[in-house]
């Protein structure tokens, strides 16, 4: 081809002198690395201060607390990467739980009952996705509406009362162990690993990043944007429903008020983990690390006997600090690079 022979090919000349610093920058920019360091530091600090942070009961309790949230993080990451978010996960979580409990009380076989709970979540997600892609209501309004609807449904069909008295065979899922690890944690780990691999490497899930990166460009590149977005919300609803089912199995009661405020905690975790509200960015592992980071701080405050009222305030500050610090450091990196180039 007619490539002008003396084209200014800066490929090598720019690359070599600062290859090392590029590597460091990239590592710094990988939010996961920063988070892991922070988490380890917090863990060590809490152990030194309280002496009981790194004990099996405490860590077990924290992990169990994370497990259902971690499952929801997978779906939320997908939603955030696609350029939207799902505010309804907390309510759908409760609705999934209530559904499985009612199905069990109606003496449906356990697998069918579980399926009902999960399907109920997926249905809520489908409705979200349908409204967002076909009627084109924005994700904020759509999922805010679903937040109210799913919570309302849960409260209405239970008259606001928790449902207890579930068959012991069902409770095994949330309370049992395999290989010495609680089932719930195993399921969460599987969800995280599978979710992370799919988001990183599967060609189907890669489309989510394109849609979030630039919707119009994605469409013109032959990506079926509507189908991708619909699938993302179905996934998010389905996983929230599944988390709700597992939570009921663990706690032996279906509480129609469960998971309230969960959506904001999860979104905060994902954002701390590197997702962007503008879409196109983020990893499942990042979201999990964000969740652990927030969880550790929470747990630390409990161990340090910080009054409950201050804990919420602290979480708000942590979110703003984490994201603010990141934004500033990125700007700082950009500027440093600009100076080098100029």
């Amino acid at each position: 081809m007619e490539t002008t022979p003396s084209a200014p090919h800066t490929t090598t000349s720019q690359d070599t002198p600062n290859a090392n610093s590029n590597f460091l920058l990239r590592l710094l920019r990988a939010r996961e690395a920063t988070l892991i360091i922070m988490i380890v530091l917090i863990g060590i600090a809490l152990q030194l201060i309280t002496g009981k942070f790194l004990t099996t009961p405490n860590l077990n309790a924290i992990s169990l607390g994370f497990a259902t949230s971690a499952i929801i993080v997978v779906g939320m990451t997908a939603a955030l990467v696609s350029g939207g978010f799902d505010l309804s996960v907390g309510s759908v979580f409760a609705m999934g739980g209530v559904t499985v409990a009612l199905a069990l009380r109606a003496e449906l076989p356990i697998p069918i009952a579980i399926l009902c709970g999960v399907a109920c979540g997926a249905l809520a997600g489908f409705i979200n996705g349908f409204l967002i892609t076909q009627i084109q209501i924005n994700p904020f309004i759509t999922t805010l509406g679903m937040l109210g609807i799913a919570r309302g449904v849960s409260l209405a069909i239970t008259q606001g009362l928790p449902i207890a008295g579930l068959p012991p065979d069902f409770l095994v899922y949330g309370q049992g162990q395999n290989l010495g690890i609680p089932n719930l944690i195993l399921i969460a780990i599987i969800a995280i690993i599978v979710g992370d691999i799919l988001m990183r490497r599967s060609s189907a899930f890669r489309q989510i990043y394109y849609v979030g990166g630039n919707e119009e460009a994605a469409r013109l590149s032959g990506i079926n944007v509507k189908r991708v977005v619909l699938a993302v919300y179905v996934l998010s609803g389905l996983l929230a429903g599944l988390a709700g089912v597992l939570s009921v199995s663990r706690f032996t009661v279906a509480d129609p008020g469960a998971g309230s405020g969960e959506e904001l905690r999860i979104i905060a975790a994902c954002i701390i983990g590197g997702c962007s509200l503008r879409g196109g960015k983020g990893t499942v592992i990042g979201g999990l690390l964000g969740l652990i980071f927030v969880g550790f701080i929470n747990n630390g405050m409990v161990l340090l006997r910080v009054p409950v009222y201050w804990q919420q305030l602290a979480m708000g500050v942590v979110l703003l600090l984490a994201v603010g610090f990141d934004t500033i450091s990125q700007r700082w990196q950009l500027r440093a690079r600009g100076k080098k180039a100029g």
């Binding site: 990043y209 394109y210 990166g213 630039n214 119009e216 460009a217 994605a218 013109l220 196109g280 960015k281």
Partner: peptide, 11 residues
Amino acid sequence: AGLFLEMSIRL
């Protein structure tokens, strides 16, 4: 409408 500006050349 064309580029994914915040993504890499490869993507």
